[in-house]
Amino acid sequence: MGGINLIVDNPFFLLFLSMLTGILLGKIRVGNFKLGNSGALFSGLIIGWYIITRINDQEVVDSLNSTFHTFFIFSLILFISSVGLIASKNIKEIVKRFGVKFMMIAFFITFFGFIGTYFLSTFYENKYNFIGIYSGALTSSPGLATAIESAPEFQTSITYGYSIGYIPGVLAVIFAMYFIPVIFKIDIKKEKENLLAKSVFYKDDNTGFDFISYMFVIITGILVGKINIGAGINFNLGITGGVLLSSLILGAAGKLWIFDFRMNYRVLKIFQEFGLLMFLASVGLKSGYRTFTTLNFSTFMLMLFSLIIAFASIFVGYLIGRYIFKMNWIILSGAVCGGMTSTPGLGAAIDANDSEEVVAGYGATYPFALLGMVVFNKVFLILLS
């Protein structure tokens, strides 16, 4: 037990072990499918579960979970800021071409998820679990915060539903990014060629990397994310939305006063890869114990419902975007991830398509999806009251 204690007392060891084993797991190919960077999520889940089950000291467990959450936030900032700056050079053209379509995709994904969740809740006695499942299936922390704020007396039920629904929601988006092109026979290479024929993607390796400007992007994003928008709704973009918005806008501006936001592509790619691996590993580490130890028939059914809600919402977004709006898959894949407010999904989309252009769709759809989650959570609570 002494050796185990030396390991669990060092969360950095657990983090890098999860990342290392995740990279190796992600390289395993079954047919045309491999987990890629998402392997870090699964290795983190297993390691997180195993280590926590070996600890009898609750103080150590709480300290570990707190550190894992810090890893989670830091890696999220690293990943989002780098992909936002990479995609910023094309964001104006992408939004101009697809415009209101992003808003409609966000609406239909969050609305269909809401309708499906509400329907399933009618068969259960504790309907407030499904408020949490709705936010979990669409991986929306702002949705959870809105629900808890609006119905604090049901916080336990709502949080439980979210914790049960989150991992299936994450897995649904990740797998969808790999399997949709297979199911619908999408030629990713051709989609990229069609998109790039109309826009030259920014990969200038001759530019430098200004850490002062990079820190300014992050600080600005954190401040923007804290601004409440809309009277009575208590809606804000949070760290993810704020940093994404600042990196896209400032990156598109290029230069502002003493700040130069034209960052070296290769450096940003390193930040992106490391941030994503760290993000996925930390999600697994802090969720592994709860995910595996709460498994029984009831929780299994709730997780299954969350998976169904997530997949249904994803396919609604895909079908509308592809067959009604005629959108290019590279941009649509990012829009679907944005509609699901799923950062792990964004990482999977970048990995599966081998293209950072997906971030433009994600960035343009994400704020509307956050707003949709806030509004539909409030509607859900009104219907239950």
Rank of each mutant, 00 (worst) to 15 (best):
V359Q: 06
L383D: 15
N236F: 05
N5E: 15
G22E: 00
M215Q: 02
S150A: 15
S342L: 04
N32Y: 13
I115C: 14
A40S: 04
N129Q: 06
F98G: 01
R322S: 14
S43L: 08
T343E: 04
F79R: 00
V30L: 14
F123Y: 12
K92D: 10
G116K: 09
R97Q: 10
G22S: 03
G363A: 12
F107H: 02
P181F: 10
S18V: 10
S82W: 03
M1N: 11
L384E: 13
F108P: 00
Y362N: 01
N296V: 07
C337L: 08
T159I: 10
S140T: 12
P367Y: 07
L120D: 02
L383R: 14
I105A: 01
M303A: 14
M327R: 03
M104N: 09
F154G: 03
F235N: 11
F33G: 02
M327L: 06
I109R: 07
M215P: 01
S140Y: 04
D57H: 12
F119L: 15
V267T: 14
G3A: 15
T343G: 04
S199A: 15
Y162R: 06
L64H: 08
I183M: 04
P11V: 03
S298V: 10
I51G: 10
S355I: 09
K101N: 03
K189A: 12
G232N: 09
M263P: 13
T343K: 04
F305K: 02
N10A: 05
R262T: 13
F184M: 13
A348G: 00
F72K: 06
A147G: 11
K226S: 15
G143P: 03
S135K: 03
D9H: 12
F216Q: 07
T146P: 06
I105Y: 02
A252M: 05
S199N: 15
I115P: 05
L370Q: 08
F112C: 12
G165L: 06
G113T: 07
G334A: 12
A310L: 07
A312R: 09
M215I: 13
G241V: 09
L223T: 09
D210A: 02
I227N: 04
I222P: 07
K192E: 15
E153Y: 09
V8T: 14
G225Q: 10
D351P: 00
P344H: 01
L195I: 15
M215C: 07
F42C: 01
F111Y: 09
I51W: 11
K192Q: 15
D187F: 11
I324H: 07
V379Q: 14
V283K: 02
S163H: 08
W329N: 12
P168V: 08
F274P: 00
F13P: 05
Y124N: 01
V316N: 09
Y366N: 00
I219Y: 07
K286T: 00
Y366W: 01
N264P: 08
A349G: 04
